[in-house]
């Protein structure tokens, strides 16, 4: 009888455990919740905040302002994903752009893919907008500096345990001289222990 009871108990347990339903809960966008240990929105935001704060506190900014009497115009170039993950680099670039613009210390120039659309609009205005509201061609603000960089990872793994090391390197380059005026680096290290058993 025990064998049968065990058999039925196991079957019942299997059926019950298989029936767990999906649960959804809204959480604040600032709330930190790491699930897989992979690069997430919190990493993107924190790295952007810290690196922008660093770049804006360095001498190149005051030197430029003293030399030209105006704020530098910056453009974000390519930030390569050299990591093990499909990181959404666009989100990271957007975080950097937001921090830079909101600082009020630099002017920001639209990226190449955005400029195409803006130029098409100005061309359209030449034909269709009134003279008072028309925006002429050839008046764009040229960038003084370009921000480039990459995100790379080193993953050390043994069984279910792994250390995930992320390194973000950014470089600010003077477009006129190709001189590197700032190099920033931010590292994140995570220790992740995977599940060893599921229900």
């Amino acid at each position: 009888m025990n064998a049968i009871r065990t058999l039925f108990t196991l079957l019942l347990a299997a059926a019950v455990l298989a029936a767990c339903a999906t649960r959804v809960e809204r959480i604040g966008v600032e709330e930190v919740r790491d699930l897989s240990g992979e690069w997430n929105d919190t990493d993107s935001r924190l790295v952007a905040e810290e690196m922008v704060s660093d770049v804006l506190s360095r001498p190149w900014l005051t030197e430029f302002q003293q030399r030209t009497g105006r704020r530098p115009a910056v453009i974000v170039g390519t930030i390569r994903n050299l990591s093990h993950e499909h990181i959404n680099v666009t989100t990271f670039i957007n975080d950097i752009e937001r921090e830079l613009i909101n600082s009020g210390k630099v002017d920001f120039v639209a990226a190449p893919h955005e400029r195409g659309e803006l130029r098409a609009e100005r061309k359209d205005q030449e034909l269709n907008a009134s003279e008072e509201t028309r925006k002429p061609m050839g008046q764009e603000l040229g960038a003084d500096f370009m921000l480039q960089g990459d995100i790379s990872t080193i993953i050390d793994r043994e069984g279910k345990r792994q250390v995930r090391y992320y390194q973000v390197d950014l470089t600010l380059i003077d477009l006129a001289t190709n001189r590197k005026v700032w190099i920033g680096q931010k590292k994140i290290k995570k220790y992740v222990v995977g599940k060893s058993v599921r229900p």
Binding site: A14, R198, P199
Partner: peptide, 20 residues
């Protein structure tokens, strides 16, 4: 995810068939 051992699936595989 599936590569992690499941208690309920092991039980079902032991009593019903491997395909569980």
């Amino acid at each position: 995810e599936a590569a992690v051992i499941s208690v309920s699936e092991q039980a079902a595989a032991a009593t019903v068939n491997e395909g569980r």
